[in-house]
């Protein structure tokens, strides 16, 4: 056995410069990502030429390349709109709330789940928490309406039983940043906590053993082992979310608020505003222009965030 092993090692060593040489390894690694790169190129970069629609007066019969250039004209209606500041502020603020509280909630739930000893209980709870992800916002909005309904909503029924008068939630814009954030968390905490849970799964159990032997209690273990190891994941997911900070989940903002005008001051975001404007004049160039703006802003923010992260924890940077 030992003999064949040494001959095997020898023959391998001889071929080393061919099989294990740096270039051969490089080729192998590149080959792994070749098909995916091709797919991304085909389905994402080839159609990217369409971005120019934002700068054109798009006519169906002239196509993307035949239509006339209009420079920045398509951007005017949005940038010079009197509502521009309000909806931009709403979009950024609300998305920030979602990212921040969403992350706190998901990480907390993920960590707590990880501490659960009973695997049966863990599985049960995860299954329940993941349910909201299956419901579209249209349906979820009906549920929210059932709860927030001024006349026979559950929330008002509960308030009444405590002696508090019913509140018409749909006429109180101040309450909605909270309502929207809670709804966003409700929908995503299940899935996101599963991601962080998986992250915790990947931590070498030896680390926990060693800490326990050293006398660390649960709380200390969480702070010194669990969280730090999740940090790269948290940072990465946060950077990715920042890229979309100028975009709104249309279903959430439109369906949940039932498009009630009274709530616009705190819930009107870029995507709902655009939807409203396009009702009469449906112009592809204009909606493309806004989409382009959303991309640019997200891009700039991500680059800034990424550079900052590189200074602090280079391995966690996106690129």
């Amino acid at each position: 056995m030992a003999e064949s092993k040494s001959t095997a090692v020898k023959s391998v060593k001889n071929k080393k410069h061919m099989i294990n040489g740096k270039t051969a390894e490089k080729l192998r690694l590149y080959s792994l990502c070749a098909i995916p790169v091709f797919l991304v190129f085909l389905f994402a970069y080839v159609p990217m030429g369409g971005i120019i629609i934002a700068f054109k007066d798009y006519r169906f019969n002239l196509g993307i390349f035949g239509s006339e250039w209009t420079g920045l004209k398509n951007f005017e209606f949005f940038l010079k709109s009197p509502s521009f500041l309000l909806i931009t502020r709403n979009t950024l603020f609300l998305n920030f709330l979602f990212i921040f509280f969403g992350t706190v909630a998901s990480v907390s739930v993920g960590v707590l789940l990880f501490e659960m000893r009973s695997t049966k209980a863990t599985k049960l709870f995860q299954t329940v928490m993941i349910m909201p992800n299956f419901i579209s916002w249209v349906i979820a909005a009906y549920m929210a309406y059932a709860i927030l309904n001024p006349q026979y909503g559950m929330l008002n029924a509960v308030l009444n039983s405590f002696g508090i008068e019913s509140i018409d939630w749909y006429s109180k814009p101040e309450a909605w940043p909270a309502i929207l954030t809670i709804s966003s968390i409700w929908k995503t905490v299940g899935i996101n906590s599963v991601i962080y849970y998986a992250g915790l799964m990947g931590i070498d159990t030896g680390l926990f053993e060693a800490a326990r032997i050293d006398g660390a209690n649960k709380w200390q273990q969480i702070i010194h082992i669990s969280l730090p190891n999740l940090l790269s994941l948290i940072i990465m997911l946060t950077i990715l979310s920042i890229g979309n900070i100028f975009r709104a989940d249309f279903g959430l903002f439109y369906q949940l608020t039932r498009d009630v005008a009274a709530l616009y001051p705190t819930t009107d975001v870029i995507d709902t505003y655009i939807f409203r404007t396009m009702r009469v004049v449906g112009d592809m160039g204009m909606s493309a222009a806004v989409g382009f703006l959303q991309s640019i802003v997200g891009f700039v923010l991500v680059v800034i965030t990424n550079l900052t992260v590189k200074k602090i924890k280079p391995e966690s940077a996106l690129f």
């Binding site: 209606f77 009197p82 005008a261 396009m278 009469v280 004049v281």
Partner: peptide
């Protein structure tokens, strides 16, 4: 007047109540 119409349309939606 595409810009003005878009903006006014948005206002119309705001005051539907």
């Amino acid at each position: 007047v595409v810009n003005e119409i878009s903006r006014c349309t948005a206002v119309l939606g705001e005051y539907k109540d």
